[in-house]
Amino acid sequence: MLRTRLDLDRIHAARRVIDPVFLDTPLYPCEALGRSLGCAVSVKVETANPVRSFKGRGTELVAGLLGEQGRTAVVCASAGNLGQALAWSGRRRGLDVTVVASRRASPAKLDRVRALGAELELVDGDIETARERAAGIARERGVRLLEDSLDVETCEGAATIGLELARARLDFDTVLIALGGGAMATGIGYALKSLAPGVEVICVQPAGAPAMTRSWHERRVVTTESADTIADGVAGRHPIPEVLDDLLAVADDAVLVRESSIIAGIRLLLEHTGLVVEPSAALGVAAVLEDRDRFRDRHVVTVVCGGNVDPHAHERWVRR
């Protein structure tokens, strides 16, 4: 029996709370991408929703719970995607949403947070600085602090992706999941290990932001002084101990990939699937590019987790 903070019954119940617009996202084999990578590849497209990322699955659970509790406000720190999702879910339920982000965050993501009606506060520094400020706002205002990955609703929302994969009529043996704070990896990993334990769960993180991967390999929290990657959505430096414990229970491996491979993955996804993705969404493809022999003769599913990318940056990457 898996010993984690997650619960399979709650994950099944989550599908009744999450707006269907986030559920049952496209999953299909992509022969052209597979030929390019040297293995069978299917893509799970988590960009086909109003916030263009998987984060809405978790924020729907959190916002619904706050509504039941009669709470009226919530604050979070975000590199952009969580903030958009919380703003969308909160607006539907009449919640006042505050998002704290780094001034260095993607302008495209910040613009979407504002457009969805959230109060946006920018800080100098990175996502860890934003987390400190968000915690301070929660204390000052007496409002709910949403902590991505630590709050189990964010993990169990993401786990509904795993439910969909487990019931899919696809004979896949490996799933590649972007790894940052760990909500998506622990959620999908838990669902698959509960329902399809033969599937290998491989987490993928940029070499420039390796904290959670190093922590998984050393089985203890390892922090880093900095993070340097174009994959801003997974650029944390301080893994959360409870999330690491969950990840250790459900992940079979965690690997690091180079920036050049991430960019190549962005190009391949555009060329073979027509998807415009942010760097975090290309991590799975990057992992195959860096270890083709490992994945030869396998059927891998890569989770395309977000499409909120600055168009000018995307153009530079695909034309390089």
Rank of each mutant, 00 (worst) to 15 (best):
L82D: 02
W88K: 04
V288I: 14
Y190R: 00
S36L: 13
G198H: 11
V17K: 08
R237W: 03
M1L: 12
K44F: 03
I240F: 04
M184G: 05
A313E: 06
T273Y: 00
E271C: 03
G34T: 08
D9H: 12
S149C: 15
E153W: 12
K193C: 05
W317E: 13
V309P: 06
D310L: 10
D228E: 15
E46W: 07
G64R: 08
R104D: 14
E278W: 06
R139K: 14
V285F: 06
I18T: 03
P279H: 12
R298A: 07
L86H: 03
G125F: 10
D253H: 05
I262W: 00
E259Y: 06
R16T: 14
R167N: 13
V277T: 04
R296F: 03
R139G: 13
P26T: 12
V41M: 05
R131S: 03
D245E: 14
I202P: 02
L27R: 05
I177K: 03
C30I: 13
R131P: 04
A287R: 06
V97D: 07
C39G: 10
H217R: 15
I262A: 03
A211P: 00
D291P: 00
R5G: 02
A63W: 01
V143M: 14
V51T: 07
P26V: 12
V303I: 11
G157S: 09
R319Q: 14
L95C: 07
R52D: 07
D173W: 02
R92G: 07
K44W: 02
D228I: 11
D291W: 00
G136S: 14
E242H: 08
D293H: 07
L269C: 00
L289Y: 05
V301D: 05
D245N: 12
S53N: 05
G117K: 08
V74E: 09
T273E: 09
L176Y: 01
D310G: 09
W216D: 03
R220Q: 14
E46T: 08
E271R: 14
E259M: 04
T129C: 09
R298K: 12
V113K: 01
T47D: 06
L146E: 06
T129G: 06
K55S: 01
E132K: 11
G117V: 12
E31T: 10
P206I: 08
A101V: 04
R15W: 02
E271D: 12
T213V: 11
A209R: 04
L275I: 15
L120G: 07
D19N: 14
T223D: 10
P197V: 11
A185D: 01
V257N: 05
P107I: 13
R169W: 03
N308F: 06
V100E: 01
T160M: 09
C76F: 01
V303C: 04
A13G: 12
H217Q: 15
D173H: 02
G182W: 01
N49R: 00
G236R: 01
R103I: 15
L66V: 10
L110A: 10
K109V: 10
E218F: 14
R5A: 04
T174H: 06
L66Q: 07
I161K: 08
I188Y: 05
Q69D: 12
T223R: 14
P50A: 10
R91E: 01
D173T: 08
D232Y: 00
